[in-house]
Design a protein around this nucleic acid. Sequence first.
DNA 1: GAGGGAATGTAATAAAATAACATCTGATTT
DNA 2: AAATCAGATGTTATTTTATTACATTCCCTC
Lengths: 132, 132
Amino acid sequence: MSELTRNQSLVLDALQSDFQPASAYTLLDRLRDHGFKAPLQVYRALEKLVESGLVHRLESLNAFVACQHDGCGRHRAAAFLICEHCKSVTEFDHARVQRAIGASAKDAGFTVRRSVIEVEGCCAACEGRDTG
Amino acid sequence: MSELTRNQSLVLDALQSDFQPASAYTLLDRLRDHGFKAPLQVYRALEKLVESGLVHRLESLNAFVACQHDGCGRHRAAAFLICEHCKSVTEFDHARVQRAIGASAKDAGFTVRRSVIEVEGCCAACEGRDTG
DNA sequence: GAGGGAATGTAATAAAATAACATCTGATTT
DNA sequence: AAATCAGATGTTATTTTATTACATTCCCTC
Ligand SMILES: [Zn+2]
Ligand SMILES: [Zn+2]
Ligand SMILES: [Zn+2]
Ligand SMILES: [Zn+2]
């Protein structure tokens, strides 16, 4: 991605200030101080950011999260561990998972463009706290 | 699942008549002839059907599809190949994928409850037709 | 400084999901 | 049979998420 525009930077900063997932409307509220007034301002920025790999969309939450490591922009794939208790989201290494998906897809003659991998459960920290 | 209620049967039939994914509102429209009038009638039926494994929710499409094989009700996991051209959805064998996810999750000390695996791309039939 | 493309602003609307509350149904108990 | 209770339904209103449509501005190039 060439250079971020003002709105794109604002949205990215909002997401990076706190690596929790945020909905478009949550971001809108956070950015009202900066002059944001309408959903489209957020959605348009997110579209570019997701396209560039700086932000990922979590399909199962209708939410967005800043990429936690460089590289997604290049290899265009990500996988997430989503804790149902503390709502934390961790990007994890998906090489193995991608290989497994690739093998299954190949069996079906299917060409993969993008994989959505979102694992819901309980993170290590929360597992320690309660038994949940 | 014990026994399906009338509304649940209607929704399941609508989904099975055509194994294409359908949104809740599409189902509502299809079922107006049968007396459906409000979204909740569909959502409530879907909730039970998904719970029982007879229907799966596609997070990346905000849509629902009938399970294509027995067994999901038991092992509570499913993975999908979604063709972007013909919109067809195929449930695929996820044993390998689940193992890969399990391994990655274990590394992170994460306990898996449910996995969302939705692979977008091009199916064999469409690949044959156009070059897309 | 005129043209053109990308980014932005703004209002309106569509699509997806849930909340709240009333009613009905059928089984179970007394 | 009457009382009770849980689950399923019906209905209206509302919330949350996402897009359409159109006017305007900004920046680069010619
Ligand atoms: Zn990433
Ligand atoms: Zn946690
Ligand atoms: Zn299934
Ligand atoms: Zn296809």
